[in-house]
């Protein structure tokens, strides 16, 4: 079986995997990092989104063995060492950008990836960037507001119209 080594949330990890072991299985079952969710398992919903070498990737649609040597960041790696939330996480709390919370790890990872690429996105930019992240509760309004707020732009501090 292939051996795989990567850096996950700043920590060097390694293990044996099957060829068919998905990144999300390696994270959740191998490393017990269960913050990365499996929603659809068909590459549609984005709940499993993580950063691989700084880029947004669906962890259910990449094999662990392909990512030998990669730097991976999951939702567990977003807060500071002292537990302080990242800007995107804090904004999701402040703007109530979630209801059931299942899609939230992927939404936070997508929002953070967007702000890396485009620090001051328009609302249309945010909505377009979230095309691969599905939320069945919120109707997206407060998720979009949270990401806009995390970029330092003014948004109305109220719930969805």
């Amino acid at each position: 079986m292939p051996q795989v080594s990567m850096t996950v949330n700043g920590r060097a990890v390694s293990g044996e995997v099957e060829g068919r072991t998905l990144l999300v299985e390696f994270l959740r079952e191998g490393l017990r990092l269960t913050g990365t969710h499996v929603g659809c398992d068909t590459s549609q919903c984005g709940a499993c989104a993580v950063h691989v070498d700084g880029k947004l990737v669906k962890a259910c649609t990449a094999f662990a063995a392909e990512l030998d040597g990669a730097e991976v960041t999951t939702i567990e790696g977003m807060a500071g060492a002292d537990g302080s939330l990242s800007a995107v996480q804090q904004a999701f709390q402040d703007y109530h950008g979630l209801q059931c919370g299942f899609c939230t790890p992927g939404m936070v990872m997508a929002g953070a990836a967007l702000l890396e690429e485009n620090p001051r996105p328009s609302e249309a930019d945010v909505r377009q960037y979230l095309e691969g992240n599905i939320c069945r509760c919120t109707g997206y309004h407060n998720i979009v507001k949270a990401i806009m707020a995390a970029s330092g732009q003014e948004v109305e501090p109220v719930a969805a119209e």
């Binding site: 590459s43 984005g46 947004l56 669906k58 649609t61 997508a110 967007l114």
Partner: peptide, 9 residues
């Protein structure tokens, strides 16, 4: 094409 995560792979 697809969405941002798909375009990265």
């Amino acid at each position: 094409i697809g969405d941002p995560a798909v375009r990265n792979r």
